[in-house]
């Protein structure tokens, strides 16, 4: 559905010097430097997937999304959405996609939300039944009616985001690009938003591309992940695969020995060098071990041999930890991360 081939985007930034003298000197001269925001990125997002587009600040996420939505033209390389190059066929592409940029509004600033929707209905030529159906849905889940006749510019961030999200779904787009869609929303509304997008995916097969600082959003919506760092793709696959790349596994257990927590900890760390044991308040012990050095069998055998286990479980590696690791690793020069530069096989 979405294909990027060797996508590159460079910016020229004017250099400003700080202070009063600096401003005076920029009055006379202006220097530029070139920043490569997206660096030779290739990936493919199949139709009907819900992909988290993940990266630290400045990783080139927003820039890539802007190219995929047709707002920016790549410096080199190309990308297609449903077979169209968005920046070449902006208007045709616009009918296929729904967009939310959390930081910015795309509604009619001076108009009320209902007025904006009426205009969107005409602009996208939305058939009456579809419009009615979606409006009813938004009323029920996002409480759109509560926004009333207030012009968009006077809405609070949370109210505006509800309207933005609804606006992006109004025309049943085949692809949704959501960039930070849950900014300013409370827990209940976040749930509603997740429910909405999952419903669109289930009933219409909508392809979703999502960026969010809220890890919970990603977990609740996405099935795939595309991780970029410093303008390069460092991982692409299912979210489960991504979690599997975690280099630490954990086991949490309870025991009946009555041994002091400090002793337990010392015994584990002595018996399994490189492993960290942390007792928690409830008397349980958490064991974190490097996945490459020990198999889970080795660790469990050790624990069964040395302690009288009452209960144990192995939590799934946290997405946050995995990502923190990926960002850290990609910053080491000379390290080629897995998945980078994978060549996709033609257009979707």
């Amino acid at each position: 559905m979405i294909v990027a081939e060797r996508l590159v985007k460079e910016f020229r930034l004017a250099e400003r010097k700080p202070g009063l003298l600096g401003s005076l000197s920029t009055l006379l001269t202006r220097r530029h430097r070139v920043v490569r925001a997206v660096d030779d990125v290739s990936f493919e997002i199949p139709a009907g997937t819900k992909t988290a587009y993940i990266g630290a600040n400045g990783a080139g996420k927003s820039t890539t999304i802007k190219m995929l939505t047709g707002i920016m033209t790549p410096t080199s390389g190309r990308c297609t959405v449903a077979g169209l190059e968005p920046y070449r066929h902006r208007q045709r592409n616009a009918r296929t996609i729904g967009v939310v940029f959390g930081q910015r509004s795309q509604l009619w600033w001076d108009l009320s939300v209902p007025d904006s929707f009426r205009i969107l209905r005409r602009v996208y030529d939305i058939p009456e039944p579809v419009y009615r159906r979606n409006l009813d849905l938004f009323r029920e889940l996002l409480d759109i009616d509560a926004l009333g006749p207030t012009p968009v510019r006077q809405l609070s961030l949370g109210q505006r985001m509800r309207a933005e999200i609804a606006a992006s779904l109004l025309h049943d787009p085949a692809v949704l690009f959501w960039d930070e869609p849950t900014i300013g929303l409370d827990m209940v509304l976040k749930d509603a938003v997740r429910h909405l997008v999952n419903r669109a995916h289930r009933e219409l097969g909508t392809t979703v591309v999502l960026t969010s600082h809220d890890i919970a959003d990603i977990g609740a919506i996405c099935d795939s992940a595309l991780v970029v760092d410093h303008g390069r793709v460092v991982h692409q696959g299912t979210l489960k695969d991504l979690l599997r790349t975690a280099d630490h596994r954990s086991v949490v257990f309870d025991h009946r020995d009555g041994t002091a927590a400090g002793t337990v900890r010392a015994r584990i760390e002595a018996g399994l060098p490189g492993v960290r044991a942390t007792p928690d308040d409830g008397g349980r012990i958490r064991v974190d071990y490097p996945a490459g050095r020990y198999t889970s069998r080795q660790v469990l055998t050790f624990l069964l041999d040395h302690f009288d286990l009452a209960d144990w479980y192995a939590p799934e590696p946290g997405l946050e930890d995995v990502l923190r690791k990926i960002y850290g690793r990609a910053r080491v020069p000379g390290d080629t991360p897995d998945g980078a530069g994978r060549t996709p096989d033609g257009a979707a």
Binding site: G70, R104, S105, Y124
Partner: peptide, 19 residues
């Protein structure tokens, strides 16, 4: 904020003036 005229399925100039 100009981007919003580029993600609508009408001519950007028309889209701009329409506001």
């Amino acid at each position: 904020e100009f981007y919003r005229y580029l993600v609508r399925p009408v001519d950007p100039l028309f889209s701009l003036l329409s506001e």
